[in-house]
Measured scan of single mutants.
Amino acid sequence: MTEYKLVVVGAGGVGKSALTIQLIQNHFVDEYDPTIEDSYRKQVVIDGETCLLDILDTAGQEEYSAMRDQYMRTGEGFLCVFAINNTKSFEDIHHYREQIKRVKDSEDVPMVLVGNKCDLPSRTVDTKQAQDLARSYGIPFIETSAKTRQGVDDAFYTLVREIRKHKEKMSKDGKKKKKKSKTKCVIM
């Protein structure tokens, strides 16, 4: 069974824990209790493949930012979460993405942009803004509501699919490099 290491990042209060708990335990946590770091595991079937999701729910508070490099190193894919009623959390996505790329030393890291709290009427981040940002990053965008469960499975499952595509691409690139290195030079 394939294991996928997913990391949920975003500013404090955007609903990272609520999304994760909704996926794992099928219930909505409405009281806000700032996370330092929590880890969850769940076995699911995605596109006919049974897999184990190892999900790291991270601290959004700035005082825990020193811990970010460590979990970013171990993560295979990242859910970059903002709240649709919090423009600052949307603007912060850029910083999370840049930090992930720096730590992973790669421009090509599996990510999904997630606009959470889409059940709320007080939207300050337009869907088109988020779609445009995701398009500019070359990553999928999904709106979710941890409260109603809308888009929750889709967000995590899409990230797994992005990781699969990335692994497939990397193995193809690896095979191309191996083929090239088999060419021999004969000096007579």
Rank of each mutant, 00 (worst) to 15 (best):
L6F: 09
I21M: 13
V7W: 10
S39W: 05
Q61C: 13
L53E: 08
A11N: 07
E62V: 07
G15R: 01
F28T: 04
G13T: 11
I24W: 05
G48R: 10
G48H: 09
P34K: 04
L53M: 11
G15I: 01
A59T: 08
L23V: 11
C51Q: 10
G13M: 13
I24S: 12
N26S: 12
D57V: 02
V44S: 13
V45A: 13
T20L: 07
A59K: 02
V29C: 13
E49H: 10
G15M: 00
N26I: 05
K5S: 07
K42M: 09
V14T: 12
I36H: 02
L56G: 05
Q61H: 13
Q25T: 07
T20W: 01
G13L: 11
E62S: 09
L23H: 15
L19T: 13
S39T: 03
A18W: 03
T50C: 09
L23E: 15
G48F: 05
Y40V: 01
Y32L: 05
A11V: 14
H27C: 12
G15T: 00
G15Q: 01
Q43V: 09
V45L: 11
L23Q: 15
L52D: 12
T2E: 15
V9R: 03
E49L: 04
G60V: 02
D30H: 11
G10L: 00
H27I: 09
I36L: 06
E49Y: 06
Y32E: 05
D57M: 01
N26Y: 08
E31G: 15
G48S: 09
V7T: 13
N26T: 09
L52F: 13
I24G: 07
L56A: 04
G10W: 00
F28S: 04
D54N: 14
V44W: 07
F28I: 05
D57C: 02
V14M: 11
N26L: 06
L52Q: 15
Y64K: 05
V29A: 13
L6N: 01
D38C: 00
G12M: 08
S39H: 08
E63N: 11
K5F: 03
V14E: 10
Q61I: 08
S17E: 00
I24H: 06
D47C: 06
L19G: 12
E3R: 14
E37S: 04
A59M: 04
D33C: 04
P34Y: 04
N26E: 12
N26H: 10
G12A: 12
K16A: 05
I36D: 01
D30Y: 11
D54M: 06
G15C: 01
T35P: 00
H27M: 15
N26R: 10
D54Y: 08
L53R: 03
Q61E: 13
L53D: 03
G60Q: 02
E3V: 11
L19C: 12
N26K: 13
G15P: 00
E63Y: 06
D47M: 06
V29P: 15
G12T: 12
S39L: 15
T20K: 03
E3N: 13
H27T: 09
E37C: 05
D47W: 05
I21F: 05
P34T: 05
V29D: 13
G60D: 03
L23K: 15
T35E: 02
D38V: 02
K5Y: 03
L19W: 05
Q61P: 07
G13E: 13
D57Y: 01
A18G: 12
G60A: 03
D30A: 13
Y32G: 03
V14N: 10
A18M: 11
Y40C: 01
D38F: 00
E31H: 14
T35N: 01
L53H: 07
I24R: 03
T35F: 00
V45S: 14
K5G: 06
E3S: 14
I21R: 12
I24V: 14
I36M: 04
D30S: 13
V9L: 15
V45I: 12
I21Q: 14
T50M: 11
D33Y: 04
Y4E: 11
V14Q: 12
Y40K: 01
L23N: 15
I24K: 04
E63T: 09
V9W: 04
V14R: 05
G60T: 01
L56R: 06
S17K: 01
D38A: 00
I46M: 12
K16M: 03
R41A: 08
S17Q: 00
V9F: 13
D57P: 01
G48W: 05
Y4M: 14
D30T: 13
H27Y: 13
K42R: 13
E49N: 10
